[in-house]
Amino acid sequence: MAKRERRTFTDEFKQQMVQLYENGKSRADILREYDLSASAFDRWVKQSRTTGSFTENDNRTDEQNELLQLRKENQRLKMENDILKQAALIFGRK
């Protein structure tokens, strides 16, 4: 089976697909007619219902946002630690 090329869809297209579904068109018909993957379509429906946005940033949970923030902070602290180690080596030579 050949690997399918990744496609991108506009927010307007996603909203139209969700609207078709909410207006009564069957999920199977939409997937077949527009050659969509079930997982992508289901994600669009869920995003539309929860936040009304198809942007990943708008659809993150509080835990996901906290994890991203903590990862950034951890990376910053590692960098600061590396800088301090280098400074200690430099000043230790003098």
Score class of each variant (00 low, 15 high):
49 R>P: 02
14 K>M: 01
7 R>Y: 04
43 R>A: 09
17 M>D: 00
3 K>I: 05
25 K>Q: 09
62 D>G: 08
63 E>G: 09
12 E>R: 12
59 N>Y: 07
2 A>N: 10
91 F>P: 03
33 E>R: 01
80 E>W: 09
44 W>T: 01
33 E>Q: 05
15 Q>H: 04
42 D>S: 15
92 G>W: 06
73 E>I: 08
65 N>M: 14
91 F>G: 08
17 M>Q: 03
86 Q>M: 10
84 L>M: 14
88 A>D: 11
33 E>G: 01
5 E>V: 10
38 A>D: 06
88 A>P: 04
82 D>R: 15
59 N>M: 09
41 F>A: 01
48 S>M: 08
27 R>W: 04
9 F>I: 03
47 Q>C: 13
30 I>M: 01
86 Q>R: 15
50 T>V: 14
87 A>E: 13
65 N>A: 07
50 T>G: 02
76 R>M: 11
68 L>C: 10
90 I>Q: 13
88 A>W: 10
36 L>K: 00
75 Q>T: 12
65 N>Q: 11
38 A>R: 06
41 F>K: 02
94 K>F: 09
10 T>I: 05
74 N>H: 14
16 Q>R: 05
37 S>R: 14
6 R>Q: 11
87 A>V: 10
46 K>C: 05
73 E>D: 13
12 E>V: 09
70 L>H: 05
66 E>C: 09
42 D>G: 12
55 T>G: 07
55 T>Y: 11
39 S>H: 05
79 M>W: 10
28 A>N: 10
40 A>S: 15
67 L>P: 02
80 E>Q: 15
30 I>N: 00
82 D>F: 11
25 K>T: 04
89 L>V: 01
80 E>N: 10
69 Q>P: 04
58 D>T: 06
36 L>V: 01
6 R>W: 05
17 M>R: 00
83 I>V: 12
15 Q>K: 06
7 R>Q: 13
24 G>P: 07
60 R>S: 04
40 A>N: 07
77 L>F: 11
22 E>W: 09
53 S>I: 08
74 N>F: 12
63 E>C: 07
91 F>H: 14
87 A>M: 13
83 I>D: 08
54 F>E: 03
57 N>R: 15
38 A>K: 05
15 Q>T: 03
34 Y>T: 00
86 Q>D: 13
23 N>K: 14
29 D>P: 01
81 N>Q: 14
36 L>P: 00
53 S>E: 08
92 G>A: 11
60 R>Q: 14
86 Q>F: 08
